[in-house]
Nucleic acid binder design. Structure first.
Length: 937
RNA sequence: GCCUCGGUGGCGGAAUUGGUAGACGCGCUGGAUUCAAAAUCCAGUUCCGGCAACGGAGUGUGGGUUCGAUUCCCACCCGAGGUACCA
């Protein structure tokens, strides 16, 4: 072998690791444990591009490093294999999503294998595998059988709750439940029908059926969660979303709002990510105030954070959907109120967002009574008040709230000024420091003091109380889709009933058609065998439904986040058929020590999984309320798109530098047709697509120069770089090191192939240190002091960089070391062997190969990581910069252990320093040992 | 609008608690090698002036604290992400 033959080395060691199951982790070990996890991918048809492995490479380096450090490392990988694209593909082609998914997984696996990850593939999981989703369904049933006790602050069994109802009713039950839950006594509970009891229990269960306003996406034929709707359109596909009332399975995540918020302080996540979750949970502290409806026994509550502004209220606003609207509207206003309600309901989410600037609304004809002054206050409805937040009703204070101000101006409602020195002719005063006037007992106080004072008064009169509100909503859990986990529930005379745990998994039935049924039911409505025979305890044909012993099964499936909300625990015990994971396994592995994944999951996966973990903690299944202590968001790798410029209405393309002389449209061009100097290969371009076969070109300097732009990597932008190509051309180790070298893991950065060469040169040079004329040639000579210094300095810096997840600077350290050793022509084993170990997390293939050449039989993967020795790093002299007024003017070498006084003397005695100081008055000398000498003149 | 994080050469990016700004890589320039090219090796490369020694400026802008500021403080400008009639 004459050269660094990376392709051969890659294949050899990838095969070796697979055959020897080198990275298989055991659940028992004398070593300390360490759990490194990547967010598992959805296996899409497009395969991996160079952006995907970035996080996997970083986590792999850390996992390998920890193995060297003597840890028992769990580093698993799997697939989030339920999802929309496979189903959309199935609708178009009729191919079963399971087949598409299987193919995509195979491709993903091949691509990952080529990069040399140290995953323990014996623990692979797939969310679409019945053996896995059996336990996703099991967790669903546990949630179904639980309620949230606010007194103990945890989830408890619904059976215990029923016992309490039987003994004492619900008056003293402090639960996270539906706010409309009626109060009943024990005897009232006993008098209820099974149906009524069932309805009550649904108000308590942690997963429940409810008629809720949901985001309905007609194009996808399914509901979407709030985090799946972006700017009024669906996150996947960008289809319009409307609001619609539907009966849906919901998850009572709001029960956990406070704990989800508080525990953010206990975990080491990026601050920005925690902030996103804090905002999403949206805690606000305020008051609930009750207003009576004038001339009626009815009343309604409002929520406000500014109870102090109560004397400034001049109107009330209810959401158009508010249940009281129909009851209080007076006959003369009924027509216009109903028209407004209908109009509001028809609006799509996008329209509603677009019309934010203009306030609309109508008067109901009814009046509320001010709880303190007794004044009559008109009640309006408007869509600027949201049914889903707070109580769906507000007290409007136009002098203190800009939205109320605009509404008052629009409809000529009077404004009471309640702030000292405030001008209400232009806008409201939202300044919290402002001092109150016209507010009786609050006059002269700022908000900070007035709010508690007002709440105290409201409580005394029994018309209000302090309250905390959260923006977080219960999560819609139903999806009207085929390719997801079936909800393990059947409908016994209309009552949702759990399928007993022992019959899980409830496997997805075969269907002929993946579209919704003609009468608009979800795709599972097409299944023939989708009824539950309670007597026979089995799934039977829907033709047998008699509603006596055979009942229909739920038709919706679970959302994408269900399977991903607990998978990190399953890796600990992936083949367990008796429980989701054993207590021993989870007691051993505890939780994820390092979690890598994208920031885009902040309000989705990363909040739902924390919720489920807390629930599993409450029911005693896991030992930790947070499953991931340390999380790193890897940044995206962006594509470097190329453009050609077509002159409008022609088939002529003008070079980038000349494009401004014409009216042009930019057209994406495949980046493979462009060289490193941004010049287009015109012949290839003509052959690329038929429409360009006869294209004409206006060149500059005889070349066609393309335009460049950094964008998200995507097939449609022709800017995708496939890691396979890089591996083929430069080897897996170059790809790994280059992706790390690009910059800090957390930041988004464009892919630019140009710098690859530098990393490749480094690896080749490193290989060359071990070889002379291509023959392995390492000397057993004792190293020099200088060589030892280089080695130990590198060990120290690289180790520190890895611990700080600063992999880009670690790569730089290797380059420095190899450059220095190349200059010294070092080929000494005592220097090179530790360097191989040091490098092995980054470039494992090359490291294994060199390790073998050095005469070792064992894999390098578990070789102890080298430790630096302080004595080689000690310097006898130190170069001090001599500064005058903070500007560097001169350098002097001084012994390291010299005291300040001697340093000062030596520096001042220096010839050069004296000439620099000539004619100047020396005021002060500042000596910072080991750092600088600063002369102040 | 609000919240969070950023702004350093031609480019990607380095700089412990305030202490030699620009590590490392790319690119570029010059040289060696070569019939030539590629590859490789050596030297240089923040900007301005100068053959050079050297001098001046310099981390988004303007101020401040300090012997000394990329780092700390204040105001502003720009960019990215999150969020939005949330009462």
């Amino acid at each position: 072998m004459k050269t660094y033959d990376f392709n051969r080395i890659d294949r050899k060691w990838q095969k070796y690791w697979a055959e020897n199951q080198t990275f298989k982790a055991e659940n028992h070990s004398g070593k300390p444990k360490y759990y490194v996890l990547d967010m598992f991918p959805y296996p899409s048809g497009a395969g991996l591009h160079v952006g995907h492995p970035l996080g996997y490479i970083a986590s792999d380096i850390f996992a390998r490093y920890k193995r060297h450090k003597g840890y028992n490392v769990l580093h698993p990988m799997g697939y989030d294999s339920f999802g929309l694209p496979a189903e959309q593909y199935a609708i178009q082609t009729g191919q079963h999503p399971a087949i598409t998914t299987e193919q995509n997984i195979k491709r993903y696996r091949e691509q990952m294998d080529k990069i040399g990850f140290s995953f323990d593939w014996s623990r692979e999981i797939r969310t679409s595998d019945p053996k896995y989703y059996k336990w996703t369904q099991w967790i669903f049933l546990q949630l179904f059988k639980s309620w949230y006790n606010k007194d103990t602050d945890k989830a408890e069994s619904i059976d215990e709750l029923i016992k309490r109802f039987e003994n004492e009713g619900n008056a003293n039950v402090n639960a996270a439940c539906d706010p409309d839950t009626p109060v009943f006594s024990a005897s009232e509970w006993h008098a209820m029908s099974p149906q009524q009891k069932n309805d009550i229990l649904f108000k308590y269960r942690l997963t429940y059926l409810a008629e809720a306003e949901v985001n309905w996406c007609p194009a996808l034929g399914t509901v979407l969660a709030n985090d799946e709707v972006v700017n009024g359109v669906s996150e996947r596909g960008g289809f319009p979303v409307i609001r619609k009332k539907m009966t849906q399975w919901m998850m009572r995540i709001t029960a956990y709002a406070e704990r989800l918020l508080q525990d953010l302080d206990t975990i080491d996540w990026p601050e920005s990510l925690k902030e996103i979750q804090r905002n999403w949970i949206g805690k606000s502290i305020g008051a609930r105030i009750t207003f009576k409806v004038d001339g009626s026994d009815k009343s309604f509550d409002v929520f406000t954070t500014r109870a102090d502004t109560l004397f400034g209220v001049t109107f009330m606003v209810l959401a158009p959907e508010h249940e009281l609207v129909n009851e209080i509207t007076t006959p003369e206003y009924r027509e216009q109120v109903e028209a407004y309600q209908q109009q509001a309901a028809r609006k799509s989410e996008r329209e509603r967002l677009a019309e934010v600037k203009e306030k609309t609304g109508v008067f109901t004809g009814a009046y509320a009574v001010h709880p303190l002054t007794g004044a009559k206050i008109p009640i309006w409805i408007s869509d600027y008040v949201l049914a889903g937040y707070g109580t769906g009703a507000i007290m409007a204070v136009p002098s203190g709230d800009q939205r109320d101000y605009e509404f008052a101006k629009q409809f000529d409602i009077p404004i009471i000024n309640i702030f000292e020195g405030n001008d209400i002719s232009k806008k409201a005063n939202e300044d919290k420091e402002a001092v109150l006037i016209n507010s009786e007992f609050l006059n002269g106080l700022p908000a900070k003091e007035a709010i508690p004072r007002m709440i105290e008064e409201l409580e005394k009169r029994g018309v209000g109380k302090a309250e905390v509100n959260y923006r977080l909503r219960d999560a819609v859990f139903s999806r009207q889709r085929y390719w997801g986990e079936p909800v393990p529930v059947y409908y016994k005379n209309g009552v949702a009933t759990a399928i007993p745990e022992k019959y899980l998994p409830l496997e997805l039935p075969e269907v002929e058609n993946f579209l919704p049924t003609k009468d608009g039911r979800p795709p599972l409505g097409n299944a023939k065998n989708w009824a539950w025979d309670e007597a026979g305890e089995k799934i039977v044909s829907v033709d047998l439904i008699d509603n006596k012993t055979v009942f229909p099964i739920e038709l919706s499936t679970m959302p994408g986040w269900a399977g991903s909300s607990w998978y990190f625990n399953r890796y600990m015990d992936p083949h367990n058929d008796n429980e989701p994971f054993s207590k021993e396994a989870v007691d051993y592995w505890q939780k994820v020590d390092l979690y890598l994944g994208g920031r885009e999951h902040a309000t989705g996966h990363l909040i739902y999984s924390r919720f489920w973990q807390k629930f599993l903690y409450d029911i005693g299944r896991v030992p930790e309320p947070e499953y991931s202590v340390k999380l790193i968001n890897q940044g995206m790798i962006l594509g470097y798109s190329a453009f050609v410029y077509r002159i409008k209405g022609t088939n002529t393309f003008v070079s980038y530098g000349l494009k401004d002389q014409y009216e042009t449209t930019p057209v994406h061009v495949d980046i493979n047709l462009v060289d490193d100097y941004d010049h287009l290969d015109i012949e290839k371009f003509k052959a690329w697509q038929p429409e360009f076969a006869n294209a004409e070109f206006i060149l500059e300097d005889g070349k066609y120069k393309v335009g460049r732009e950094v964008e998200k990597m995507s097939k449609s932008k022709f800017n995708v770089v496939n890691p396979d190509d890089i591996v083929e051309q430069y080897g897996a180790d170059t790809l790994r090191m280059y992706e790390m070298f690009l910059g800090p893991i957390e930041i988004a950065k464009p892919w630019n192939t140009a710098g690859l060469k530098g990393v490749f040169n480094f690896l080749r040079k490193f290989w060359s240190l071990f070889h002379a004329d291509g023959i392995f040639d390492v000397s057993l000579e004792e190293p020099t002091e200088e060589e030892m210094k280089i080695l130990h300095k590198t060990i120290k810096k690289v180790t520190e960089d890895i611990e700080n997840f600063s992999f880009n600077t670690a790569v730089s350290q290797f380059m420095i070391a190899v450059n220095e050793l190349s200059k010294l022509k070092t080929n000494k084993q005592k220097i090179l062997a530790p360097l191989v170990v040091l490098l092995s997390p980054f470039a494992p293939h090359l490291a294994e190969e060199l390790w073998q050449e050095l005469g070792h039989d064992e894999t390098i993967a578990f070789e102890p990581y080298p430790e630096y020795e302080e004595r080689y790093l000690k310097e006898s002299t130190k170069t001090y910069p001599v500064m005058i007024n903070g500007k560097m003017r001169h350098k002097i070498d001084l012994p390291v252990n010299m005291d300040n006084e001697s340093i000062e003397k030596t520096v001042l005695a220096d010839e050069k320093v004296q000439s620099l100081l000539a004619g100047k008055q020396l005021k002060k000398v500042i000596v910072v040992p080991g750092k600088i000498v600063n002369l102040v003149v």
